[in-house]
Design a protein around this nucleic acid. Structure first.
Lengths: 177, 177
DNA sequence: TGATAATGAATGAACGTTCATTCAGTGAAT
DNA sequence: ATTCACTGAATGAACGTTCATTCATTATCA
């Protein structure tokens, strides 16, 4: 319901009906409306991040780790479009989920990226001397934008197949040289 | 008020008080609450896009055009943080502004990027054979992410100085080669 | 039968919107 | 110069709707 209508526009009655329970029953399990979104958010986050971690750990070198991460990221969001919508439009932006928690999540993602970049620099496959904070946003930003486009266009095209060309862009850039 | 409290949480009474008029007066100038946001949005969009256009036209080659665009983009958002907040959190995502209009805006931006990329390819400074839709998202995504971070952290650090390293990343990528 | 869970109608606060009323400013008439 | 009628922008109290939340009642279960 939150994905379809937006958090605010969705009503408890709709949520209850969808869940096949009465309105009041919701309040036996959740403190209030925002609490539903919070729980959904942290539940999904935990689940998905474990898979991100796993995907990264499966690869040996930085480029493969990054490719696995991006593939996983796109795959998980493609698999569960409602989650994608809630993550991209409601949870990470609107103020319905505790802002500190959102910052933590973002940091977790950026920390994985940091780790990959460090490895790549040790390997010699990733340049040194770049502003590392910016590099991480540069990577996360592009993935987010690709997912956003997919969400806005109604999830028509395939998301996962964007992963390889995206990683190629990260590494090669757009310059001819 | 929309930037500070979010569109939904801000009330007409607050807006009216801030404007120094009575609640009812608002309705002599705007159809309804969403209409205020819509007008703000399209007003600012027009203003800012003219400046983007100007910045791009000032440069001769693709790299300079892109750098000018990104600099302008960051500068305009840094100058008017409330606008930045409304653009990044309310207007482009929430359903308070006509979705078609938002798509148009995004397309306008992507079209400018397309033009720059084409020029760069003609010049030989930008590679050919990349998926052009993805390249555009890749660029826009990183800028958005940088702005988002700036918004979330309360607008502490300088935004504009991110432009040059960002453009360098676009062109060079992170790979060492 | 006692305990626990579920129900859904009732409640009331919040807030966008309306509209009868006010009143400063303008110009015509005396 | 003074009065008077008119205008239309501004006002803000009142209205009506929406909806999250509560709780007395009912059902289920061990």
């Amino acid at each position: 319901m939150f994905a379809e209508q937006g958090f605010h526009h969705a009503t408890i009655s709709q949520v209850a009906k969808e869940a096949g329970v009465a309105d009041g029953t919701i309040y036996l399990y959740f403190k209030n409306k925002a609490d539903i979104l919070s729980h959904f958010f942290s539940y999904k986050t935990r689940l998905v991040f474990d898979r991100f971690r796993g995907a990264v750990d499966e690869a040996e070198n930085a480029e493969d780790k990054l490719r696995n991460l991006i593939r996983r990221h796109l795959l998980e969001f493609q698999r569960d479009r409602n989650m994608a919508v809630v993550f991209q439009r409601e949870a990470l932006l609107a103020r319905y989920v505790n802002e500190e928690y959102v910052k933590e999540i973002t940091k977790m993602y950026l920390d994985i990226l940091e780790e990959i970049i460090r490895l790549g620099q040790a390997e010699g496959t990733i340049r040194t001397g770049m502003p590392s904070g910016l590099v991480k946003r540069y990577i996360l930003g592009a993935v987010n934008e690709v997912i956003n486009t997919w969400v806005v266009t109604g999830g028509k095209h395939d998301l996962v197949e964007m992963a390889d060309p995206l990683v190629a862009l990260y590494f090669e850039g757009i310059g001819s040289r």
